[in-house]
Lab assay of single mutants.
Amino acid sequence: MAAGGDHGSPDSYRSPLASRYASPEMCFVFSDRYKFRTWRQLWLWLAEAEQTLGLPITDEQIQEMKSNLENIDFKMAAEEEKRLRHDVMAHVHTFGHCCPKAAGIIHLGATSCYVGDNTDLIILRNALDLLLPKLARVISRLADFAKERASLPTLGFTHFQPAQLTTVGKRCCLWIQDLCMDLQNLKRVRDDLRFRGVKGTTGTQASFLQLFEGDDHKVEQLDKMVTEKAGFKRAFIITGQTYTRKVDIEVLSVLASLGASVHKICTDIRLLANLKEMEEPFEKQQIGSSAMPYKRNPMRSERCCSLARHLMTLVMDPLQTASVQWFERTLDDSANRRICLAEAFLTADTILNTLQNISEGLVVYPKVIERRIRQELPFMATENIIMAMVKAGGSRQDCHEKIRVLSQQAASVVKQEGGDNDLIERIQVDAYFSPIHSQLDHLLDPSSFTGRASQQVQRFLEEEVYPLLKPYESVMKVKAELCL
């Protein structure tokens, strides 16, 4: 049975990233139509530049190519590739079939990587351009969430054990800070992308030097003109047959890092959902379990974690691919890159769409948070109580021993009897502590235990987050809708 299948058929496997999760716009960027249309555009740009620099290419040939950029006979191309065992030459023939007058000058002087690699770089750039505003929107939604809850005390956790208090907004800023680093890295790697350009079979530009009869300047002009037509500021000066596969490492490393950030955020949300302090959106008709109707599973956060793990592992592909590119190139890269580049971007696209949807509907339960604080705060307040007693004339050592005994009794009630923490009640009825009984409410005010959390939130948002989001103001209103 021949390899390949009808990918629109229910009898043929289709990647869930495309069929179930990723956005239509990201799927289109990695589609065959987008790819092969870009090949034709690159052939047109090459012909236009070659004509401008004096090669015998007519206006009629150029116009014929322009008129057929979208006229792609995919069936013919597939048949040609089956016959020739070469995808680029299959599309040269297919393009030439609908451009008979231009057929002889299509791909003039070029090698397969002229269309293959340059198209990949265009796709990487455009895919990054799709991700950047999506990530900015996630940051914006979380920034709104953090600002609104900047002063809401909550129990902090280290080692997932109760620690000092923080605020809900401050905790959210930990998430935002990681995503801001990801946004900066995505922008950097996007701006650092260079075009492969017009380089020939081993990167020496020998074929173009021959076409222009040894004119170095025209060869350099050709490279520059096509690079500018493709919208790049610069091209690699040095290439082998391909652009260095280190570029793929750079791009997928940034995406993998984004995956790590999203995994951490969504894990926190899942843990908070278990504590009943916070939940992701839950639709009115949504079913959490087929057997347990009360369940409210954090399905979206779980999906993000599941896909983020996949995204983090994909960076190993370009690392290994770059390491086995012998001399000017081997074909070890080809099949692998067809999979890992598309999957990385479709996965990143999915987790950003999902995280935006989550961040637009996060639900906080202040009463649950308050109750958990009441359970733990008495123990945390013991040092403040000791200091207040010393100020009232008591002995630190005597007070410490009193607190120690009462704390152990209260802990026994919590752990052995399943009761509430009654340390404060014990202190309130103990005559030894009568000098500070009137101060206990103040000493137990949760806001006095959150330090500068709310001020940190305000400063972080104003100095770091809002300036970073400013270039994306025009796209901030787009909502994230999930079908599944």
Score class of each variant (00 low, 15 high):
A2P: 12
G4N: 13
G5Y: 11
D6F: 04
D6H: 00
H7I: 15
H7M: 14
P10S: 14
D11H: 15
R14W: 15
R14I: 12
A18V: 14
S23A: 13
P24M: 09
M26G: 02
F28H: 12
S31L: 04
S31W: 01
D32T: 10
T38D: 01
W39Q: 13
L44D: 02
W45H: 14
A47D: 04
A47P: 07
A47R: 02
E48L: 10
E48M: 08
A49C: 09
Q51I: 08
L53A: 07
L53N: 06
L53G: 04
G54T: 00
L55H: 07
P56T: 02
I57N: 00
T58G: 03
D59L: 06
D59T: 14
Q61M: 02
Q61T: 07
Q61P: 00
I62L: 09
I62K: 04
Q63K: 11
E64D: 06
K66S: 07
K66E: 02
N68Y: 08
N71T: 05
N71F: 05
I72W: 10
F74M: 15
F74Y: 08
K75L: 09
K75V: 07
A77N: 15
A77S: 07
A78R: 07
E79M: 10
E79H: 11
E80W: 04
R83W: 09
H86G: 02
V88I: 15
V88M: 14
A90V: 09
H91P: 01
H91R: 06
T94Q: 08
F95L: 10
F95D: 02
G96S: 13
C98D: 12
C98R: 11
P100A: 06
P100L: 11
G109W: 00
T111V: 00
S112T: 00
Y114V: 04
V115Y: 00
G116S: 10
D117Y: 03
D117N: 01
T119N: 00
D120M: 07
L121E: 11
L121F: 04
I122K: 04
A127G: 12
A127S: 11
L130M: 10
L131W: 02
L132M: 10
P133E: 14
K134C: 07
L135G: 06
L135P: 06
A136D: 04
A136F: 15
R137D: 13
V138A: 10
V138K: 05
I139S: 07
S140F: 12
R141P: 07
L142F: 11
A143R: 09
A143E: 01
D144V: 13
F145G: 03
F145R: 12
A146N: 15
K147S: 11
R149N: 05
A150H: 12
S151L: 09
P153Q: 03
P153C: 11
T154E: 07
G156S: 10
F160G: 08
F160D: 03
Q161M: 11
A163D: 02
T167H: 15
K170A: 03
C172V: 14
C173V: 09
W175D: 06
Q177E: 15
C180Q: 06
C180P: 03
M181F: 15
D182G: 08
L183P: 03
Q184S: 11
Q184M: 08
L186F: 12
L186I: 14
V189Y: 14
D191G: 07
D192I: 12
L193N: 13
R196A: 05
G197I: 02
K199E: 00
G200C: 07
T201I: 01
T201R: 01
T204I: 03
S207E: 01
Q210I: 15
Q210W: 00
F212S: 04
G214L: 13
D215R: 13
D215W: 09
H217E: 14
K218V: 05
V219Q: 11
Q221R: 12
M225W: 06
M225T: 14
K229G: 01
F236N: 07
F236C: 13
G240S: 11
T242W: 07
V247M: 14
I249T: 09
I249G: 03
E250I: 15
V254M: 04
L255V: 08
S257A: 12
A260K: 04
A260L: 02
V262C: 12
C266S: 08
C266F: 09
T267M: 15
I269A: 03
I269N: 01
L271D: 02
L271A: 09
A273L: 08
E277N: 01
F282P: 03
Q286Y: 00
I287P: 00
I287V: 06
G288L: 01
S290Y: 04
M292K: 04
K295Y: 01
R296N: 05
N297S: 01
N297Y: 05
M299I: 03
M299W: 02
E302D: 02
C304L: 14
S306Q: 00
L307W: 07
R309E: 07
H310T: 11
L311H: 02
M312G: 02
L314C: 13
Q320M: 02
T321K: 01
S323L: 01
Q325K: 01
R329G: 03
T330D: 00
L331F: 00
D333H: 01
S334D: 04
A335P: 03
A335V: 08
R337I: 00
R337L: 02
R338I: 04
R338N: 04
I339V: 08
I339F: 08
I339S: 10
E343F: 00
A344R: 04
A344Y: 04
L346I: 15
T347S: 14
T350L: 13
I351F: 11
I351G: 03
I351H: 05
L352H: 11
L352R: 02
L355H: 06
I358S: 08
I358K: 04
L362M: 11
L362Q: 06
V364E: 03
V364W: 09
P366V: 07
P366N: 06
P366Y: 01
I369H: 02
I369A: 10
R372L: 04
R372M: 11
R374V: 07
R374N: 01
Q375H: 09
E376W: 03
L377S: 03
L377V: 03
L377F: 02
L377H: 02
M380A: 02
M380I: 08
T382E: 05
I385L: 13
M389R: 05
V390H: 10
G394H: 01
Q397R: 08
Q397W: 00
C399E: 05
H400S: 05
H400N: 03
E401W: 13
E401D: 08
I403F: 09
R404K: 09
V405E: 15
L406E: 04
S407L: 02
A411W: 06
K415T: 13
G419P: 02
G419E: 13
L423T: 03
I424N: 10
I424A: 11
E425I: 06
Q428S: 08
Y432N: 09
Y432W: 07
F433E: 01
S434C: 11
I436T: 08
H437D: 12
D441F: 15
D441R: 13
H442R: 12
H442F: 15
L443G: 03
P446L: 03
P446G: 05
S448T: 12
R452I: 10
A453D: 05
S454D: 14
Q455L: 08
Q455I: 07
V457D: 07
V457C: 09
R459S: 12
P467Q: 15
L469H: 05
P471A: 14
Y472M: 03
M476S: 15
M476A: 13
V478R: 15
K479A: 10
E481H: 14
L482A: 14
L482S: 12
C483A: 13
C483N: 15
C483V: 14
C483G: 13
